[in-house]
């Protein structure tokens, strides 16, 4: 869009990003926590709808906790 060196294109706020993890987008720590929470809620809801009659909700919690750790550290 514009020549390099044009000050407009220097993002005024630098994302504090790390080298890419397994997530398809660049993320910082906030993003990864956010994704974990979103996933946690989503999985718990689906669990309550479809799986809870066989496995208690704690299953979802443990699963999500593991997933969250994975996302936050490796995402």
């Amino acid at each position: 869009m514009a020549e390099p060196g044009n000050p407009k294109l220097v993002a005024p706020v630098q994302h504090k990003t790390r080298p890419r993890g397994f997530l398809p987008i660049e993320t910082n720590r906030f993003d990864r926590i956010f994704i974990s929470v979103i996933a946690w809620i989503g999985i718990s809801l689906l669990w309550m709808r479809f799986l809870e009659s066989w496995i208690p909700l704690w299953g979802a919690t443990v699963l999500c906790l593991l997933l969250a750790i994975l996302i936050v550290r490796k995402g």
Partner: peptide, 26 residues
């Protein structure tokens, strides 16, 4: 809250897409 959750997820996906488009152009 559940509705808020769905809206946030939907809008967040759009937001990510927006950010990606922005990055690609730079």
């Amino acid at each position: 809250l559940l509705v808020l959750y769905f809206t946030i997820v939907l809008c967040w996906l759009l937001f990510i897409a927006l950010a990606q488009v922005g990055k690609q152009r730079e």
